[in-house]
Nucleic acid binder design. Structure first.
Length: 729
DNA sequence: GTCAGATCAACTCA
DNA sequence: CTGAGTTGATCTGA
């Protein structure tokens, strides 16, 4: 039987003839009769179809049902009486809020205030299985907080037994119990490393970041904090698993998927995810412009649930019937989506491709395509995630949340193989911060097509770095910071001396993960601390990089911080905090950004530096750092450099001297030690805490001073974060 | 009608 | 370029 259609609304035949659904003509000529949609009438073509669209709020013209003809029942015209007009609306949430449709009654009409909903009496037509009903509804806190529904929720796959370690060895808790697929998979995992290892790693991160018990409310509805923490734990776990894979099996051909493994561990085994309640419109905790590097990340934070499919949709109870509405799409260019000026997107429907042999056939008006069609008529907001090629050169993709769009029209086209494909034209809802268009602008700046406005110097390093660093002021008249000499790395007059001699490694081709004989890898606990693209793989107190006496080449993975800038940076004038630093390129969580260059200050001279401290051009590794729960894992309680390194960047330094303080930073530093014979050179390297979208200011926590000088060095903090301490040093 | 398990589709990712 | 791999929706049968 069909789902989601009440017996009272089924046509005389007694069941829905699917072919009729699929044969519905492309609905491009259907135009919603929303009173305030001028211009849309121009595409109207009344003769093509007997269907008439009506405002979701009604009133419905006589004989016209709000839904598709095949679900019309005799009593349809009386349905408006059944919608609770007094129900509190959430303007914006459904995308109708500030437009011409003041009251999104149909979309939230299904939300029942209290008990009755638990018994499923939301309407006689409530069919479909429980999952469907539950996922189809945007729920207010009171709607689903009763215990029955919560137990239903967990029964549908969200385990609460987060500490259930003994379960780990036997594989994941899953619906399809002992299928061969799973056994084979479990065997493969045993071959690499055991589920127990993964589980304990996951538990470690979850404990550190306070996610062991994720309360149901925050699973249903996220916030910025929980979204960032979940993404952080995901990426830490993913990197850890990658590192473990590499150590076990150095052959690059092995197709393992740490991203999937990490996501499954968190979502399925631990129930760590948020915004699992699908909704129309923005997702709490995810901001326009946020970037992601894996599809599973979209899934974890509830931005886009399907792990592969491009269209996410939900069932919404509009009147007595449920209908699918699109909630989000991922545009990855896989179906040659074309023609967009940044605010308009032409999106292709899904399906039409045989996955095995790539054979094409006509797309059908079902699933996501049907939901898109419905959303066109309902004019609800659809989240758009743009998939872009990673400019950093690696094969991966970057996903940018570009905010909400509305579907303007739809039609079908014949593709190259002669099969029909659905097309949807979406345009961006106005008033949202630039996201995708910003990326396009940056591409043009880089290509020299258009120039960045307010550029004072195209490259303030004068070629000292491998990448230019622009100096930009589009805020006021200031022509630049006080004069200084640009040097790309830290200048030592005299190295620290280490007690025991170190002669270095002999890895002529660079230190390779899994090479247990390499002394540099040994010093790093058996792992190369960086990935092949310069991402720090796990959080340590200290990184041992290869030094002067190592035989490996300069491009050795274990010399990442010596290799210079990886991203295109600019020094810019902030509104109220002097000069700051930001990046044109996206930066992955853990990505190396730069070191802190300058002159090493003799410890005995530190006292003389008061004025430089005033200027903020001093880096002091001897400061006390608050436990940075968002950065360091539990084993690294307080970061303390092994040597009392103090750096002055007043007279000479690099881009790092422009990085401002924030109490909620997106960058952190680690001490990096390069040893040769009895000499120790300590450097300070900066890494991204989380994914950083282009043009977001880079900031780190300057740390605390524990001395009597503290009080007069104290400065008012303008970082503006919710967790701001109010001052910094 | 409900539920669990199986199957299927999907703009992945290395 | 190929294939192992995931989630969520849908289907099936008891």
């Amino acid at each position: 039987m069909e789902q989601g259609l009440g017996s009272d609304s089924v046509p005389p035949s007694g069941s829905i003839d699917k072919s009729r659904v699929l044969d519905v003509r492309p609905l491009r000529c259907l135009v919603p009769m929303f009173p305030s949609s001028p211009g849309m009438g121009s595409v109207s073509n009344p003769q093509a179809t007997p269907f008439v669209c009506v405002p979701p709020t009604g009133p419905f013209p006589p004989g016209v049902a709000p839904l598709y003809p095949f679900s019309v029942s005799n009593g349809s015209h009386s349905r408006q009486n059944t919608t609770p007009s007094g129900a509190p609306n959430q303007p914006g949430l459904y995308g109708f809020g500030n437009t011409t449709i003041p009251s999104p009654v149909p979309l939230n009409a299904f939300r029942t205030p209290q008990g009755p909903s638990a018994n499923g009496d939301a309407g006689p037509s409530r069919k479909g299985n429980k999952n469907r009903a539950m996922q189809g509804i945007v729920i207010e806190d009171d709607g689903y907080s009763d215990s029955q529904n919560q137990s239903e929720l967990y029964a549908s796959g969200f385990s609460m037994h987060v500490n259930d370690v003994e379960d780990g060895s036997s594989g994941r808790r899953q619906k399809n119990g002992g299928s061969q697929k799973r056994t084979r998979r479990a065997q493969q995992q045993l071959d690499s490393f055991s589920e127990v290892d993964v589980d304990s790693e996951a538990n470690r991160f979850l404990t550190t970041f306070g996610l062991v018990e994720l309360d149901p409310d925050r699973k249903s509805n996220g916030d910025r904090e929980i979204v960032q923490r979940i993404l952080l734990v995901f990426d830490l776990l993913r990197r850890k698993l990658t590192q473990m894979e590499e150590a076990k099996d150095a052959t690059p051909g092995s197709t393992r998927r740490p991203d999937l493994r990490a996501a499954t561990t968190l979502m399925t085994n631990k129930g760590i995810r948020t915004n699992i309640m699908k909704r129309i419109g923005h997702v709490p905790g995810v901001e326009v412009g946020d970037i992601f590097f894996f599809r599973m990340e979209l899934c974890l934070v509830g931005l886009h649930a399907p792990s592969m499919a491009g269209i996410d949709y939900m069932s919404v109870k509009l009147t007595l019937d449920e209908e699918p509405l699109a909630v989000s799409i991922v545009s990855s260019g896989g179906y040659d989506d074309e023609g967009d000026d940044g605010d308009v997107l032409i999106y292709s429907g899904q399906g039409g491709v045989q996955r095995r042999d790539g054979q094409m056939f006509d797309q059908k008006l079902e699933r996501g395509n049907l939901a898109m069609e419905k959303s066109l008529h309902r004019a609800n907001e659809v989240r758009v995630v743009r998939g872009l090629k990673d400019v950093a050169g690696s094969t991966g993709k970057i996903y940018v949340y570009d905010g909400v769009y509305k579907i303007q029209e739809s039609w079908t086209e014949k593709n190259k193989s002669g099969c029909s494909v659905f097309k949807y034209k979406l345009s961006r809802v106005a008033g949202q911060p630039a996201a995708f268009t910003l990326w396009k602008s940056i591409q043009q700046w880089k290509g020299g097509v258009t120039s960045r406005s307010g550029v004072i110097l195209p490259d303030l390093t004068s070629g000292a770095e491998s990448q230019p660093v622009s100096l930009v002021n589009d805020v006021d008249d200031e022509k630049g910071p006080a004069y200084f000499t640009y040097i790309p790395s830290l200048k030592y007059l005299k190295p620290f001396s280490s007690p025991k001699s170190f002669t270095g490694c002999h890895c002529l081709g660079g230190c390779q993960p899994g090479d247990s004989n390499c002394p540099c890898i040994q010093r790093n606990g058996g792992h190369v601390p960086y990935s092949s693209i310069g991402v720090i793989m796990s959080y340590k107190l200290l990184i041992h990089e290869c030094g002067l006496t190592c035989s490996c080449p300069p491009n050795c993975r274990n010399r990442t911080s010596q290799a210079g800038l990886k991203v295109r940076l600019e020094v810019f004038k902030t509104k109220d905090r002097g000069w700051g630093l930001r990046s044109w390129d996206p930066i992955r969580a853990g990505g190396f950004i730069c070191e802190y260059a300058g002159e090493v200050v003799d410890a005995s001279r530190v006292g003389e530096l008061a004025s430089e401290h005033e200027d903020g051009y001093v880096f002091d590794a001897t400061r006390v750092y608050e436990p940075v729960e968002n950065v360091h894992d539990a084993s690294s309680e307080s970061a303390k450099a092994p040597f009392p390194l103090v750096i002055s960047a007043k007279n000479s330094g690099n881009v790092a001297r422009f990085m401002n303080h924030s109490c909620s930073p997106n960058v952190y530093w680690l001490p990096v030690l390069q040893e040769s014979n009895n000499d120790s050179y300590l450097h300070i390297a900066f890494f991204a805490i989380r994914h950083i979208p282009p043009m977001q200011e880079l900031t780190f926590d300057y740390g605390m001073i524990q001395s009597d000088q503290a009080s007069y060095r104290r400065k008012k903090c303008l970082c503006g974060s919710a967790k701001c301490r109010g001052y910094f040093y």
